[in-house]
Design a protein around this nucleic acid. Structure first.
Lengths: 196, 196, 196, 196
DNA sequence: AATGAATGAGGCTTCATTCAT
DNA sequence: TATGAATGAAGCCTCATTCAT
């Protein structure tokens, strides 16, 4: 008898891979990339150190895949959820809704967002990560730009970049200031500025 | 052991301390905190590893002091330079000038800025650093708020927070996108938005 | 489960075994025993890691069998090829021809020869390998001795050992010095010395 | 007070360095390079793992320095001892004496010799070691060549290479065959052949 | 005050070997 | 018979920190 069916095997591998990625994300996000050891991740995932190297070439490779898997997907999810609403909303409302979604993620996925920013700042020497980030930024710019164009905003390209930066900036300050940061008010004023 | 000697000694100690801090900054900013070893700093400063431990309790303590020393001072410098100009400028021009100064620093002290953001995102478990950052943010909020109030902007407190976040966000995106980020245009549009 | 099937099975097993041994040889010879992993061999042989352990108890056991299989056979081949020529050559010519054959192998099977020498020097603690080497050396001594006796050389036993050693020594220096070693001239002078 | 005098310090460092090299030699020679761990060496030397890396960049670097330090010196010692005798001996006697010295070393420093041969065969990918070996071989060739020239032997260059190879070959066989190898007789016949 | 040799814990990674399927 | 996911020991190396001088 040949061992497990190839299909079943492939499925199990995917499952394992995702398990490792998600555990790694949790740990990286919580304690930072450098402070998290492969051993930490293995223990948290309930597997052996060695197994991680069956799925990823190195700690860095794991990090890259965490970002690819989670970050791009997160951004994608946001814009898809905006698209879904698009039929029921006016262009202006769509803008407001979209921004609102980002504020949601900022609160719910703070760890991932923190990790991304942190890596973005350290990443001069990890080209592959840099590439993932650039890819994500470009995606965000483009999507916001399209929303702006629907609203016939002039200078949409530059404005999109300013809005994206604004969102990251607010996230950054929110993460530092914590409860001293009145995110609701910020959000309201921010949306108001953009949609007027 | 006359008091005179003590004073001279104290001066020398301060000098050494600053020398270590500045060398550490250079290294942390350039290669990241984790990639920089105490040995690196000692060599760069032309002193021995052991001596660093006469001035700082640990590597982390050194990092905290680097931030305290440099970060607060950097922000202070900016606002002092704005103050100096204040007599020759209209309130609106002051706003523009101030923002411009931040863009200057963004380019000239990119490494320091990057380091600060990076640490800010990882720092849940280093309370002392967190404290320094909060202190600095509050300082920035306050100063911008005052500039806004001179211009009779409503909601000055929230607006100040938005502008501060915007600046950090732009810095963040600029650091990631590099030459693909048209900082000059961004700056122009940003200043234009604020001063109109 | 007829006996026929058993035979076929046995044949297949032998085939697999040889396949593994030959692949292992290639890899050990090319990259060294320690630098070659079981995985490397499995991949190169197009089989799974686990299967290797159905045929050999351990990596070391595999190594021993590689040597047994290949080394003894290689030496055997040389002397058989001398034998074949023996009817058409004078005793002296046979000597020259035999030496020549060794020089051929030295160049064509350098990797195998290198591996054998290397193992021979490290093998204090792998008795089985030691045994194979001793067996091979004895075989070589005996064969050369016989060639010498046909030529009525006195002290044939000692001379055989000197010639065998000389061949290994030349191989060793050739492997180290590479192109800086004028093997052709060495060979000519060596043969000349022996056959005069 | 400044710490230890620089001179004293330098002396201690040299001592440590030599201690590590000699311990490493013992271990490498006894168990082979790959089977010896840095930990083994540290324990044997009664120091910590880390300290080894204060003196050598890597395990490979340590190996290279072991060879440089011990091998070249060993060869040098032999030829110097021949030189010393040179005034009291006829050229032929010098040859015999020189060969005899090599046989001595073969017995007394078997481990070092074994290690060298073993490395020589594995070393395709450690260029620095290769270089040390080539250097040593060239030294040996040259010295033997000079001895031969004094004896007005024709083809001295090729003959020197043959004798050097012969010595290594004998060592090789001696190391494999052990007590079954009548080194005394081999030596006698070998010397006899060369000096006649 | 200053040095830097020394420590040793801990990090990343490899790989022979096992075992459920 | 055959697979390859999984293990875990062991290897190399780094580096913050200490301490004798």
């Amino acid at each position: 008898m040949s061992p497990r069916t190839k299909q079943v095997n492939e499925q199990l591998k995917q499952k394992r891979r995702n398990q490792i990625i998600l555990t790694a994300l949790e740990n990286f996000a919580h304690r930072g990339y450098h402070r998290t050891s492969i051993n930490d991740i293995a223990k948290a995932a309930g597997i052996s150190k060695g197994l991680i190297y069956n799925y990823f070439e190195s700690k860095e490779d794991l990090l890259i895949n965490v970002l690819k898997f989670v970050l791009l997907q997160a951004v994608d999810t946001i814009f898809k959820s905006i698209d879904k609403k698009s039929k029921t909303l006016t262009p202006l409302e769509m803008m407001a809704y979209g921004i609102g979604r980002f504020f949601d993620v900022m609160q719910k996925e703070a760890d991932l967002w923190k990790l991304s920013i942190s890596l973005a700042m350290q990443v001069a020497d990890i080209p592959n990560i840099h590439q993932v980030l650039v890819q994500m930024f470009d995606m965000v710019y483009l999507q916001i730009e399209q929303l702006l164009k629907v609203n016939e905003v002039p200078d949409a390209s530059v404005k999109a970049r300013l809005i994206a930066a604004q969102l990251d900036g607010i996230a950054l300050h929110y993460f530092v200031m914590g409860n001293n940061y009145d995110l609701e008010t910020i959000k309201r004023v921010f949306i108001n500025e953009i949609t007027s």
